[in-house]
Every structure is written in C-alpha cells, then in structure tokens.
Write a protein that binds this DNA or RNA. Structure first.
Lengths: 218, 218
DNA sequence: TAAAACTGACTGACTAGTCAATCTTGAAGG
DNA sequence: CCTTCAAGATTGACTAGTCAGTCAGTTTTA
C-alpha cells in the first residue's frame, strides 16, 4: 500500500515534492473528468492525455482506476467534515444568534462546495462504481450525523423545540442542503431562476430563512 | 423511429398485445437494473437473460441501449408530471386547508416515487449517459416549474406572503422534496433513523411541517 | 403463407491494466 | 567538480477481456 495518508506538511513548506505534484495533478484532472463526464466515461487514457504523460505513469501513482476514485472521495470527505464540525454549537444564545450561526455554517459549506465543485458533484450524483457509491453514501451519512449533533446541541441549549424527531429533522435538513448545492452548482437550473448567480453568502441567507421559518416564514 | 408514443388504451381493455407485454417486461427489467447497478454496469446480455430471451430480441423492440434509457425517462416523466399537476390550486382557503392540500400532494408524489422507485432512482441519481443525463435534467426542471406554478397560484390567492422570490422558493422546495425522496427510498440512511420505515403519508406529514414552518415551527 | 417474433454465434470497437525498456535524479565517492 | 549508479520516474506498444450491436436463419402467429 502506497497510501500516503494525506500528510499535513508539518512546517517545512518547501514540501510538495515533484512526486506529490504529479499526484495532485492527476487527482485534479480525474475529479474534474469524473464529475463532468462520469466515472465510466472517463478513460485513463483521457486523464493521462490531459496530464501530458503516458498511460503507464498513471499506474506508477495509482493502483487502479477505482483507487483514484476512492482517494478523491476520501480526501474530500475529510475536508468537508472539518467544515461542518466547525458549526458545532458550544454557547447558548438568542434565536437570532442561532440563525446567524447557522447562516455562517451554511455559507462555509456552500463556499467549500463551490471551491470543490467537482468533488461535490461526484459525491452527490456519482454512483457508477459500486465501491465509490458506497464511499459516497458513507460520507453523506457522516454529514447527516454531523448536522444531527448540531441540532441536538441546539435543542439541549433550549434554542430549538424539543418535540421534534432529531433524526428526521437532520435528514430533512441535509436533504435540503444537498439539494440546494446540487441545483446551485450543477443544475438542473430553471432558465428563469437566478439561483446559479447567487454568492455562497446570499444562498446561505435564503436557505437559512427556509430552514428555520419555512414557506410561511417572515 | 418505432417510438410507440404511449398509447392510452382507449377503451377496449383486451389491449396489451403480446408485443406490448414483452416490451413492458424488458422496460421493467432494464429500469430495475439501471437503478440498482447503474446504466454502464447493466449489460444488454443481463437484461435479456433476466427476460429469458436472446440478445437479438432486445433489438427487435429497442433501437439501442440508449433508446431504452430515454424511453424509461420519458414515460416516467409523463406520469410524474401528471401527479404534480393535480396539486394545482384552484380555490382559495385557510392556511390549514393549504397545508392539507400540500400534504395530499406530497403524499401522492411520495406514493408515486415508492411505486416507481427504480425510475425515481434513475431520475435523481442517474447521469452516466449524456443523453439520459439531459433528459433527467429536463424532467426535473419541469418538476420545479410545476411547483413554481403551485406556489405562484397560492400567492395570488393570498395564501402565501408575496414577498418571496418565486423561483428561489420553488428551487428550495423541490430540493427538499427530491432530497427526502432520495433518502427515503434509496439512502444514504443513517442507521438510527427510521426514515425508511415511514409510510408515504407519514413522510408527507413530516415534510409539510418542515416545508411551511421550518425547524422553529410548531 | 407471409409477416412478426425470435435466436445466438459472431464482430468490431473499446479500454483497464501490464511490462520490458528507457530516461532522470541526486547522493556517494573519487 | 565530476563520475557513477541505483532508485525513482516515465514510456507506449501490447494484451486480454468486455460488450453493444448485427445478421442470416428459424420458429411462431394469425
């Protein structure tokens, strides 16, 4: 196994060896092509052509096509969960503070999604290879779990009514967020909708309003 | 083109010729396999083996693999939009009447999704072949448009605040509904969640509560 | 008895993964 | 500062397997 477990370059910033750079290059090309054209429609020969290297080089860096797919999911998952974990609520506060905090979290998530759109596309819509499908599902369960903890905490702090079914609410919330991201970044976009033109911040404001107050809301 | 445009069997119910039956059989097998294993992972040889016919027979009924995929989307789209169109609001009413109406519509949609789970899976998560991806997107835009009309009508009748951005709300709502269906029927399901065990009616009740009142709601 | 339905072996295109040969790099030794 | 040389990195033609689609011939149907 040459797994190279995502070494956080300790302090010597002259890191990023030539080897790592090529690896990153191949990963970047692969994630873009997987998202744009799908896993099966992406040939290794496409990836190496884009990178300007020979077919054999790919297999110097990755064991197989499946391996690079799983690597993409794994590294994206780590970073996404870090963003969500930041939203974990530690202090009680007013409703408007809670709404603001939620909006901040959503903005961060949307920003992450925007900066990692190909990963998000793969995560939310890609499920061609069985093992990648499974890895995506696990990541999305983690995501739901992270939101469940956030809601639970907010409930403990008396900021949300205790009557609600936690898991149900988390599932509804994550459904909403995933759906919004999917529409925002990679359609299907209604021609008259200006959804795609919103910034992460604006989208977060709209979404949080719906999240807390629903269609009847303020 | 032998497109056979979904003839609504006029009145002679002795319809469903042998030919149509075989066609339906192949369609049913294909949609199930496409949803379960993906489009690319489904071989024509799998489909015909399931149906107990020879490879050549498939090509007697369908021009190509792509053709059967598009046919699946097309016929499902028609039926889905019919269900949504029934929710079009003609009469004004109280808030609770509106909520009830919305809940009824959601129940119908969830029921349809349940009865056509393979089609829904293909619609919501399938995008391996470019033309099928496009057809799915178009269908989902139609769906959003149908909901937009419903919301617009409810706003005209004074049942929803006029302040909201119509397209935005429709996009948020459809995101929520699509996400809920995806989680309900084909995961990713959090192990502790009982989402998957809900009936269409119960799910509609939960969803509509979130739809109108949000996390802070009643 | 002719059209419709069906058969299944076959083809041709495609593509993940291999491998023996070659080039590059950088450190050790002179 | 130069040479050596082994590990690291790269090459691209090749293999082996897969699979959509074909077609000449056979059986069923009405």
């Amino acid at each position: 196994m040459k797994e190279c477990v995502f070494v956080i370059t300790n302090d010597n910033d002259k890191s990023a060896s030539k080897r790592d750079l090529r690896r990153e290059q191949l990963l970047a090309i692969a994630v873009e092509r997987f998202a744009k054209h799908g896993y099966h429609n992406t040939k290794i020969s496409d990836i190496v052509a884009d990178a300007g290297v020979a077919q054999g080089t790919f297999y110097w860096y990755f064991k197989s096509k499946e391996a690079i797919g799983l690597e993409i999911i794994r590294s994206g998952r780590e970073r996404l969960l870090q963003v969500i974990a930041k939203g974990y609520r530690s202090q009680s506060g007013s409703v408007s503070e809670m709404v603001e905090g939620s909006q901040r979290l959503l903005k961060d998530i949307f920003q992450f999604a925007d900066e990692n759109r190909y990963f998000m596309e793969l995560l939310l819509t890609g499920g061609e290879d069985e093992s990648i499908r499974r890895a995506s599902k696990e990541t999305r369960i983690d995501m739901e779990e992270a939101f469940r903890r956030n809601i639970e905490r907010a409930t403990e702090l008396g900021m949300l009514p205790g009557s609600m079914n936690l898991h149900m609410r988390a599932a509804l919330l994550v459904s909403l967020i995933e759906g919004v991201i999917a529409r925002w970044l990679f359609g299907p976009i209604h021609p008259n909708s200006d959804l795609a033109r919103l910034t992460a911040e604006e989208l977060a404001a709209e979404t949080v309003r719906f999240e807390f107050f629903g269609l009847l809301g303020i």
